[in-house]
Design a binder for these strands. Structure first.
Lengths: 319, 319
DNA sequence: GTATCTTCTGAAACGCGTTTCAGAGCAAGA
DNA sequence: TCTTGCTCTGAAACGCGTTTCAGAAGATAC
């Protein structure tokens, strides 16, 4: 495969001139420009991206770190990221961690080894303290709360969002409320619990169910929930998929929603709409887009930014 | 940032020796090895992946081409791909095409410019004839049928799968069957139509609905379907998400499934299980894994392979 | 006519790790 | 003793596009 030196020889110019033609530098005479173009065509020249990357030090890539690529929760984030990245001629390198710290470290090592220009972290086990040690090698943007000043954060304000969800439930007359959370120790779960205790007068420890991530978990939850003697009148889920699993199982058991128990989801995934799930709509695609854009801005010298997004109530029939 | 030459100077050895230490080549004396390690530690050496890539000509990356990253249909494929890639220390570059030919071309251009070692195509607008023109630059594996010999294909055999789905419906006593397809001109849709006409005695043109991709499309379909005078007794969907949208909307309208119309989905997405959707389970994660592995094998000199996978019936309550 | 720009060109160095090749030193086998 | 074969080492070339720097030629300004 022809390289820039072959072109130079063939067109009887220097490699510098060929490079200038490639980069549309103005100071090349019309005549040599034509000769170079002809040579490139004749030899079927294709610019080697690797050489360009090594030479310029810019990879035009960012790594996206997330636990599972097939979890619908991340779908909208990734969609926003993909659109923004494509618009700016960047590529996304996806890294699935399965919640493993070692995988997160490997993914961030790409930054150290100059394999990517930046990192976007949708979910992490790693402490921010450790994450900051990677910051020297490139910008990092996270979709979670609590990031230090050096790390950009575009996130759903889970505290404020849970508060507003709880208010929606209360406006519908529900006072005895339970909440369904994913991993118990994650910052978002902690914020949600805090909101729960702050806003719900009848809050109870045993009305907090943790460890629910998937629709299958939602199916399981139905059994657990129904076997409980004292039950809340409404459930606030932290994920539409868990809510849908629960809803399907309740339908199967012929248990009326919201008569027996009211449900409020969180995300606003289209599939929830089909089943009339009332939910808190989260601007995940927008977050994805802004995560990319803030990373790009940092690569161009901007300062890290922190921005909390809020959710809005989407009417359904489960309240 | 220190490079290999700095290390060499610091440890008073040649760059060759440093390179040998990095690659654990045996012919290095214990003493120099120790000196090199010490120097690397002291200067905080990090191997530059770009230089390695340029030097070896291997990028350790493959591009994955798909229309939408957030479509749940692709989730399981991508999961399989991600697992296999990680196991072999490869990175996935995701390219979202939104069904645009120009985007597919750009994605495959990565191959030409040596930005990736191979390409995995989950869905494409491009003709195989055009796709073959990229083959010279690296292995390509597709998840669709009809690929020429030079392109690997690990796919669901949509014809056979639709035949077996239709048989399931017939075994349940349904003879008047309609089918719901995605894009009308795609090879998989054509194969499905062929199976429909071959196996269903009462097949009718107006019982083929095309253009249904998402759960929202499924909601829309309910109206269209119900407004039709002569309706089939069962619907065979080509996607669980469309089926679920339809199912939700039918529930909302208090229309009994399967009494009014029976439903058979296709995919076997977990969320369908929650709502008792009868479906044809497709081994998508396995396909993803094999797509990667066959690409890897080709990079190591193996021949392209073609393999059709079949689906299995997953019992639900919509038949 | 001289000074100052502007335009155009190319040699060489750079980014950085790997690989080839030649050769030195030393031990085992004939 | 001589040959063969390891073990160990490093200079130089390689992969390939970009950038710096020096300089030539022609144009404009004073």
């Amino acid at each position: 495969m022809a390289n820039i030196r072959d072109i130079a020889k063939h067109a009887d110019v220097s490699v510098t001139t060929v490079s200038r033609v490639l980069n549309e530098h103005p100071y090349v005479s019309k005549e040599k420009r034509t000769r170079v173009h002809a040579a490139m065509k004749e030899l079927g020249y294709l610019r080697n991206q690797q050489a360009l990357t090594l030479s310029t030090g810019k990879t035009q890539r960012v790594v996206v770190i997330l636990p599972y690529m097939d979890h619908p929760y991340y779908g909208l984030f990734v969609n926003g990221l993909a659109k923004a990245a494509l618009e700016h001629d960047y590529r996304l390198v996806m890294w699935q961690t399965e919640y493993k710290l070692s995988e997160e470290r490997q993914a961030l090592d790409l930054l150290k080894h100059r394999e990517v220009d930046g990192a976007i972290v949708l979910s992490h086990e790693m402490s921010f303290k450790e994450m900051e040690t990677y910051r020297a090698y490139g910008p990092i943007a996270v979709a979670t709360v609590g990031a230090p000043e050096t790390i950009s954060s575009i996130h759903v304000d889970h505290y404020a969002s849970f508060v507003s969800g709880i208010h929606v439930l209360q406006e519908h007359g529900y006072e005895e409320i339970g909440i369904i959370l994913s991993r118990s120790h994650s910052p978002s779960s902690l914020a949600r619990q805090q909101a729960y205790f702050d806003e719900v007068a009848h809050a109870r420890e045993q009305w907090i169910w943790t460890g629910y991530l998937t629709s299958e978990d939602g199916i399981r939850l139905a059994e657990t929930f129904l076997s409980q003697k004292e039950r809340p009148r409404a459930l606030f889920f932290s994920s539409d998929y868990v809510a849908l699993g629960f809803l399907g199982e309740m339908q199967r058991r012929d248990i009326k929603i919201p008569q027996e128990v009211a449900m409020l989801g969180f995300d606003g995934h289209p599939i929830g709409h089909a089943f009339g799930l009332s939910t808190m709509l989260s601007p995940n695609e927008e977050i994805g887009r802004r995560l990319f854009e803030t990373t790009l801005a940092e690569m161009n010298g901007a300062q890290p930014e922190t921005h909390g997004m809020t959710v809005s109530y989407q009417v359904g029939t489960t309240l």
